[in-house]
Computed example of a mutant assay.
Amino acid sequence: MSNGIIEQVSNHAFRNMAGKVLERNDFILTAVFERHLKEALGIQIRNYEHLGMTDPFYLFVNLVGAVGLAGSPHGPLHYGAPQRIDDDLLQVPEILLERRDEEAVNSAVASIMEVLWNAFGFTERPRY
């Protein structure tokens, strides 16, 4: 029986500008992570439309092997996070997407990024 669960995995945010995989416990480029998350959601929404799946649906995001990871919008020399993640599995609370429009997707991604910034020790999204 099919339950409609689709899993996607990516390590794009863990690569530097040249596409080289970063050393373990280095940092995550949060701007890249956010962009790739929006792109992945857009692709998945098109897949759902192709399959005839209807709204709503849930979004789950987990960072596996996250212990020691630091965050930065532009790299380790630009406004790095005040703390590293202290858990190997960072689970973002599930998000209900009731609509597939751009506003709903942007809101969901903003919620995910807020959790990520909080995990890095910020009380809100850093201003760049």
Rank of each mutant, 00 (worst) to 15 (best):
M1S: 13
M1I: 06
S2C: 08
N3H: 14
I5N: 12
Q8M: 15
Q8K: 12
Q8V: 14
Q8A: 13
V9W: 12
S10I: 07
N11H: 10
N11K: 14
N11F: 04
H12C: 02
H12A: 09
H12W: 08
R15P: 00
R15K: 15
R15N: 09
N16Q: 10
M17W: 09
A18K: 14
A18C: 04
G19W: 04
R24K: 14
N25Y: 10
D26H: 14
F27N: 00
I28Q: 00
L29C: 13
T30K: 00
A31F: 03
F33M: 15
F33H: 06
E34G: 02
E34Q: 15
R35G: 04
H36L: 06
E39N: 07
L41D: 03
L41Q: 02
L41R: 03
R46H: 04
N47K: 12
N47H: 10
H50Q: 07
L51F: 08
L51D: 12
G52M: 05
G52V: 02
G52P: 03
G52R: 07
M53V: 12
M53S: 07
T54L: 09
T54S: 12
T54E: 15
D55N: 13
D55W: 00
P56G: 04
F57N: 02
F57C: 03
L59F: 05
V61N: 07
L63E: 02
L63D: 01
V64Y: 10
G65V: 10
G65H: 08
A66V: 08
A66F: 09
V67F: 11
A70C: 09
A70Y: 08
S72L: 09
P73G: 01
H74N: 12
G75A: 08
P76T: 06
L77N: 11
L77Q: 11
H78S: 14
Y79C: 02
Y79A: 13
G80N: 01
I85E: 06
I85L: 11
I85Y: 07
I85W: 04
D86H: 04
L90K: 08
V92M: 13
P93L: 09
E94F: 04
L96C: 11
L97P: 12
E98G: 07
R100D: 09
D101M: 01
E102S: 10
E103F: 05
V105M: 03
A108T: 05
I112S: 03
I112N: 01
E114T: 13
E114L: 12
W117F: 09
N118H: 15
G121R: 05
G121D: 10
F122C: 02
F122H: 14
R125M: 14
R125E: 15
